[in-house]
Every structure is written in C-alpha cells, then in structure tokens.
Design a protein around this nucleic acid. Sequence first.
RNA 1: GGAGAGGUGGCCGAGCGGUUGAAGGCGCUCCCCUGCUAAGGGAGUAUGGGCUAAUCACCUAUCGAGGGUUCGAAUCCCUCCCUCUCCGCCA
Length: 432
Amino acid sequence: MLDLRFVRQNAEFVRDALTRRGGEFDLAHFAQLEQTRKSLTERAESLRHLRNTASKRIGEMKRLGADASEAIAEAEAARGELSAANAALESFESEYRNYVLGLPNLPEDDVPDGASEIDNVEIGRVGAPPKFEWTPRDHIELGAKLGLEFERASRLSGSRFALLRGDLARLNRALASFMLDVHVHEHGYEEVNVPVLVRRDTLVGTGQLPKFEHDQFHVAGDEDMFLIPTSEVPLTSLYRDEILDAARLPLKFVAHSLCFRREAGSYGKDTRGMIRMHQFEKVELVQIVAPQDSSEVLETLTRHAEIILERLELPYRRMALCAADLGFSAARTFDLEVWLPSQKRYREISSCSHCRDFQARRMGCRMRIESGAKGMIDFPHTLNGSGVAIGRCLIAVMENFQDADGNIVIPDALRPYMGGAEKLFAKSATKQ
RNA sequence: GGAGAGGUGGCCGAGCGGUUGAAGGCGCUCCCCUGCUAAGGGAGUAUGGGCUAAUCACCUAUCGAGGGUUCGAAUCCCUCCCUCUCCGCCA
C-alpha cells in the first residue's frame, strides 16, 4: 500500500511514476475520493462527538440523581443522523480501500523505462555458456532417461505437472539442501518451514490480493484459504500486525517450499517441459530491514542468489527490470536468468525485489526506532528473492552438465548431497 | 468430529452497563536519593485516523473480528476467527 499522505502531497509525481509502470492514476478521481473520505469522516466523527458528550452528561446526572431526560432526548435525536452518517462512511470506505489496495508500488526513480520485458536492461553476465560437440538435448529428452515423467503426472493432476523419479528426485532434493545450507551457514538466514496454505488476509498483505485472485489456487470448501504462490508470502508476513524493535533488524529468513500458480494468463507459454508448472519448489529469501539499509540489502540479497548459481557453475546474467515489468509490490527488481543450452537463451531463475514499505504497510508490520517511552514508529522495508527456483535450476543443471551420452555430470557443489556420486546415468529406457 | 474453557496494553492480570484507553504488578525510559554491585522514592510508558509546524493539545476509533441491544458496551445478545484441555481420528 502506498503512503496516502505522500500520495496526497505528491499526486503528480505518483501519477507519473505509476504511468511509467504502464498503470493509470487519475488525479481527479483520487482527489474526489479523498475529498469524499474527508467530509464523510468529519461528519460521522462530529456526530459521534455530540452523542458522546451527551451520554457522558447523562451518566453524570444519573450519578448525582438529577433528571437526565433532556440530555437523553438530545442524544436520541442525534441517533438517526449518526447511523446514516456511519452507513455512508462504511460503504464508501470499502470502495476506497479496494481502490487503494489496487494501486501498485511506485518504481524507484532510476528503474529503467520500458514498455515490456523486452526493455529490461542487462546488468552483467557471469560464466560462459558451455560448448557442445553435439546438439545439446533439452531437459525433456534428457529427463526421459533419468526419471522425469509428464504423461503419468498429467494423468494424476492434469497439465503443468511433472514427476521426478529416482536419482533425479534425489538431485532435486540435493539442490534444495545445498541452497538452504549456503543461505543458512554462509549468508546468515534463519531457516523457516512455512505453511503453504494461507488465509486471504495474508495474501492481501503481500500484494497478491485483491487484484490477482485469478492467479491463485483457492481451496474449495468452507475455508477461505489459498495455496501460496511463493513462500515470500508467509515469510514476509511473519511479523504482520506486530511492532518490531528496530534493534532486532535485519530479519533474514529462508524457506524451501512448494509454490502453486494457476498460470492463468500463460496458456500456450512454455507448455513443453517443466519450465512452468502449477506446482514447483523454490528456496526463497526474505529480509525485513530498516529503511536506510534497504537499497544496499537488495544488492546483497541478489548476490546471495547469484552465489548459488556460481557455486553450481551455471552461466547466468542479471537483468534490471524496467518499470513496466515490475511486479505489483516491487519498487525495483533484479531478475537472474540462467543459460539453457537447448533454448540458446537465458531464462528467469530468480527474481529479487525491493518492496520498500509497500508490503509492511499493507500488513501492519512496524518497527519502533528508539526503545522506551519516546519510541518512534515507522515501517520497515521488505525484500525478497528466489535463492533460487529449484525446478528451473534442475533443468539448468541437466542441460548445462549433460555429456555426449545423455548422462548428467553432477556439479561439484552437489556431490556431497548425492553420496559422492559424480554422474547421473541415463538408462536405456524408463519403462515401468 | 464430540465435550468443555478462554481470548483485555510489551508481558502478567483486574474490570462484567456510565468519571475505564482501561486498576494493580512486571518490564522499559527519565529524574532524585544512596553508594560497591543490591535497594529506595518520583514521573512517564498502546495503536490507527483527523487536525497540526509538531512524535504537544484536541477530536475520533480500537479490550480477538464483525454485527446487534442501549442515550451510553471491554462489560449484555448473535455470528465468525483463534488458543487451550479431554475424547475420537490421524502423519
């Protein structure tokens, strides 16, 4: 949620910033809403004041044994007006709230301009794409002999599901363990095991709702619950509705979780293979930090994700997303893209975002700056990043580390997690 | 799923229709006294919104959430959410 006081005072700046992301912000409409809100609250509050003072007088008179009928009549008279004013205010407020919750975050000033992902700016590359003396196989072909199954998975669950079997399942697990270990032991994150079902409010807090409900899996039944699209949701929400002692910041969390996405808008996109699944695994990094540290933290958090790719010897590049490609809650985002030999291009494997106070405001996560009586309260900044997506990373390992026979050389960093094995061997067939 | 108990400020805990935004205690902050590691005295100490130069004052809201009764609700009624105990089921 935007700082409405700021929006009020800098409406034109806000309009320009939101326009940059391809959104719209109608100054007149906003001014109108503000005006309405102000007059409706003022009216309701002054009527309430009237009633309160009358009621208080009644109490005093009764205590003194005096006749309170005049005051009672006065209070009764205010009643109808008050309830009308309250009703008007309430119905307006839900409209207003919806509008405000639908406004995305403002891009930071130096986020590049652009109309779509085409305009994202490459910041740098690390590692050279491997050279093959054969036509590199894609992960589907490689996987067919290693335990990656789509047909059986879709029989169980439909399109955009996959099964991993045998060594490939283990490699997948190794990736998750490896990433967690690096982030916990080397980068200082606390490992958290999170719920993957959350309530509506939680998704409002991080920004997926109310606007993007169609992208979420909503559980059928009496419970109003959703499957998380990323563990950013529960991790960032850990301190929802709390006031943190600023001295405790930064908070650094890492989680390995399942993630669920309807992929409603992506029909026909990445339909082959396991690039885009309804269910996937991801190691997610989240930091809750003091505002003055946040810009620097975006860099270090992005580095934490990059280090995973570097340890795995995967070629990648870092992209600065242009304003139009930013997610709803992000003020700035770096994407990491890993080289996929079969596609001869870089594909997103991590997205690291700085949300400033946008999410903290929505979820009421605050911080007390000086402890004690005169403590000032402010919103911390939240950041998140994939560190990294496990399914896509598995694909990248398979494709980049394939040999001429379709086996997979296990990157050194993963060998300790694979019982010391150096290769996954393709089987002639994976019947049964 | 069945039966019961409960949700009050940073924490514990009173209040059960009117001067209670909330006693008391703990914790914390500041001041004083005293001085050798402990103690005593005083003051302060919830959050959102409005207004404002203001983190003063004032108005307004909030005692799990939402509705209702009432001139007036932390207190009475209804619905929901959550926590705990016992039984059942279960990984």
